[in-house]
């Protein structure tokens, strides 16, 4: 076993410092060490996107990143996007438009979608599908996920216009 490293992460605005083996994967560190269990492990092979977090402004599959690589990073997980009593527009929209069934993929979907709407604030359906291509859902058939994201985009844009 190699030596443990001193790791610092800022997750959802909170600083964490701890010792970890460099080989620990970010997803397991978040879930098992920091008890941040919103990001899920679907495939553990970089395919499904259930483990998606935002790291230094990038959408990242946290099953394919060592905690050593993330050292010093700012990370946002679904827990940092909204709370049960204060849902994010995207979360509200997924509820409203039935964008989930079992809900397993949902934290990754919504985390990726927040970034997608930063990249393209007013996406077409095609852009939503292309921008969500790294996230797999085994239940919904995607139709309602796309609908939820498009509806959230309209709502965010309307709110933005009202504010201006």
């Amino acid at each position: 076993m190699s030596d443990k490293m001193h790791i610092k992460l800022n997750v959802n605005g909170e600083d964490h410092e701890f010792l970890a083996e460099p080989r620990d994967l970010l997803i397991y560190t978040l879930r098992e060490k920091l008890n941040i269990t919103g990001p899920h492990v679907g495939c553990d092979t970089s395919h499904c996107g259930a483990c998606t977090v935002t790291l230094n402004g990038k959408s990242v599959k946290s099953c394919t990143m060592f905690v050593a690589q993330a050292n010093g990073a700012e990370i946002t997980t679904i827990e940092g996007i909204g709370q049960p009593d204060a849902l994010h527009v995207l979360q509200e929209s997924f509820r409203e438009h039935h964008g989930l069934q079992c809900g397993f993929c949902t934290p990754g979907m919504i985390t990726r979608a927040t970034k997608l709407l930063e990249e393209i604030p007013n996406p077409t359906e095609k852009e939503v599908r292309f921008g969500m291509a790294g996230n797999i859902c085994r239940c919904t058939g995607y139709q309602n996920i796309v609908k939820s994201i498009l509806a959230a985009a309209s709502e965010l844009n309307a709110a933005q216009e009202a504010a201006e």
Partner: peptide, 9 residues
């Protein structure tokens, strides 16, 4: 190539 998350890294 791949998907948005993979292309970020």
């Amino acid at each position: 190539i791949a998907d948005p998350q993979v292309r970020y890294m």
